[in-house]
Structure formats: C-alpha cells, structure tokens
Design a protein around this nucleic acid. Structure first.
Lengths: 190, 190
DNA sequence: CGCGACGTTGATTTGCCTCAACGATTGTGG
DNA sequence: CCACAATCGTTGAGGCAAATCAACGTCGCG
C-alpha cells in the first residue's frame, strides 16, 4: 500500500526489506475529496502527511481576512504544521486537499516509534527536513530579491504544471500578491 | 572546549559521556574578529557553525546591490548554507561575524562521520533542523501577515537584545525594509 | 436555469522607496 | 591629540508599484 513511500525513502537512503515492512505496517492511507481538510485552526496537528497523488495546501487566514498559502504539497512531498506538533499547541492553519488526494498518514506517536526502532527512518526524516528548510530559505531569498512581477513570472515558468492545476487566486496567495495583480501581469505580456 | 555544545545537545536528547567525548574530539574552535568571514560568495560551504559567543549573520548581495540578511545566529545557534553543502555548488552567501565571535566548526565530512557513529547526534541535528524550519516558516508567516511597520515593532519588542547589539541598518536588511523607513517609524512614536 | 466561483479591467489610493542633504559618532593616521 | 574620513542615523520631497475598491464578464455546476 505504501510502496510509493518506500521507493521515495530508498531514493535517499538504504532500507532493508524488514524495516520497509515495519514502516509500511505503521502507516495508513487516507483518501481525501477535493476541499477536504486534514487540519483546521483550533485543532492540534498530530500527523505528518505524505502526498501519494493529488495536491494539498497549507494556509492561514491573515489579518486582512484573506487566505495566505504558505505551502503546496505535490506528489512525494510531506506536509504538516511542525510548529503545532512540536509545541503541542493548537494550530492556526488549514491543511486542505486542492484536488482529490491520497495521503499516507504518519501519526506523531508512530513517528516517534519508527524513529527509535528504525534509525534509517530518522535519517530519512532529517534529510527531508533539510530539503524543506533549504526550500524555505530559497523562497525567502526570492521574496527579498525579486519584485512581485519577477516572482510571478519566475514561478509560472519554473512550475508550469502548478499553473495548470492550481487556480490563479491560490498562486497569488502563495506569492503574496492579489489576484488582480496577476491578471494584469498576464495582460501586459504573454 | 566544547562543553557548551554538549550541554546544548543534552537539552534535547540523552547523550552518554563516551559519545560526548567523541563528538568533542571531532570539533574545532575558531575565534573570529568582528567582520571576519567564514564564507564568501564563490566558495563552497563546507561546514556548519555553532556560535559559542558573539553574533553572526548570513546575507547575500541583492539585485539592487544591497546586503540582504537572511539569518542571524546568536549564542547556541547553528548557521550555515545548507543549499551549498547539499548541492556541493558554490555559495552566493556571506557568513560574517558581527561582533568578535567564537564558533565551533563542524566540518561536513565530520558531520557525516558523527551521524553514522553516534545516532544520538543525528537525532540532535534532526531536531535542530526541525526548529530551524519552523522558525523559517514563522518568519515567512510574518512577512505575509504584517505590514513593514508592524514587523519592525514586533521585532524590536520581541528581540530587544538584538536592537542593542545589531546596527539599525542590519535590522532593516533582515526585515526587508530601508534604514530610512525604520528611522521614520521610530520618529513617529516611541 | 440561476447562482456562486473565478477572472478581468478601470480608477484611485497608499505605503514604502528613492534621492538627496545633513548631523552625530567613531576610528584612524599623521 | 587632533584633523579628517568613514560610518551610521535622521529628515524632507517626490515618485512608483501594487493594493484597494468597484463593476462587469464568464464559466461550471447543483
């Protein structure tokens, strides 16, 4: 059931079949309809989600009362609210399926168990975190180093598939601009 | 020599004396004068730095030809360019001491060795990464959710010690605003 | 069919930047 | 020890990029 995750893990580290089986036995599949939530504000986030197919987003409601997307998660990405998990406090985020989506659910307790029983799994998670952190740093770099227009153009050429799967107002939200702004940029030039 | 690091590690995980001694034997201390660099653009980043005392910053030169600070590192923080380390490509960042600073140097090869020999150390690094990632996410949240003025006021009340140790133009750079802007905000109200 | 979700376009506003000039403080070499 | 330069912060005037406000078109779907 979670061959896809095992394959993904093996892209980064060696994992024997026994450990693979053990990991598989601890993880559950969840099927989500479009617009379904796995986390809403006021709940405590208790799991890490691995996207098998489909597309998720993590967002919050900003002071201006608009949705502010902080992350997308495509196939083979993990998504969660680490802040809520670590602090054990209530989240103020939504995690929602943008399309019909299948996720593997790694419960927090299960994660703790897997980490102690399977050192290779801890290594995998460390590597994922390092990638996530690097991505986050890169994104911040872009926020500081590019104008809104440059950022949109860069995004849509680097991730053309996103532009197809995600409504424009979500791209706007992710980039921190208004939908009107994107509309104008597109009108100005192809 | 690196008791401070060992103490820090033990805040998060159990570490026996033998492993502690092994870690200590692999790490070197480096004393940096104010304004000294441990990384400059065009070099490959090869180590992770743990600040024992003093203060470091990580920054790059933006398109507009100004210094853009992406991170500070106070005592007990790690600082590095993971992107360069992972990709083995040349960095485009500076890592510089803002004050006279002492850092412990964890060379990349040494890190790899420690991680395989001391599982507890890998756990520690994973936890540090999770904290760093969470901090990065929080900062992005603030970038999206607050005006520049709010962000400055929030920063200076939450980190008053920073305001004392760091020149104002660096705070401006970190927040992504101009020094003039900060000056005006301060003039408007205490 | 009719309603809601999504995108477009125009007019106006605004928050912050840019450019420029000027103090204050620090530090450095003669 | 002083003169002078460099660094850092302040203040004013003007400009601009993107937001806001508002109206309208269109598509998809219950």
């Amino acid at each position: 059931m979670c061959e896809q995750l095992i394959t993904h893990i093996r892209n980064f580290i060696d994992l024997n079949d026994e450990d693979a089986a053990f990991i598989s036995s601890k993880i559950t599949l969840q099927k989500l309809k479009k617009k379904a939530f796995v986390l809403t504000p006021g709940k405590q986030c208790k799991a890490n989600y691995f996207v098998v197919s489909g597309l998720m987003r993590l967002y919050f409601i900003s002071k201006k009362d608009i949705e502010q997307i902080t992350q997308f998660a495509l196939e083979n990405w993990w998504i969660t609210d680490y802040d809520s998990i670590d602090s054990k406090r209530l989240s103020h985020f939504y995690i929602q399926a943008i399309e019909d989506t299948e996720v593997l659910v790694l419960d927090q307790q299960t994660e703790a168990e897997l980490i102690t029983r399977v050192p290779a799994f801890e290594r995998y998670l460390r590597i994922m975190l390092q990638k996530a952190f690097t991505a986050s740093q890169r994104r911040m770099e872009m926020l500081f180093n590019m104008t809104d227009e440059e950022r949109y153009r860069n995004f849509s050429t680097r991730f053309p598939h996103f532009n197809q799967r995600v409504p424009q107002y979500m791209v706007a939200s992710y980039l921190g601009v208004t939908p009107q702004f994107i509309s104008r940029v597109r009108a100005r030039k192809a």
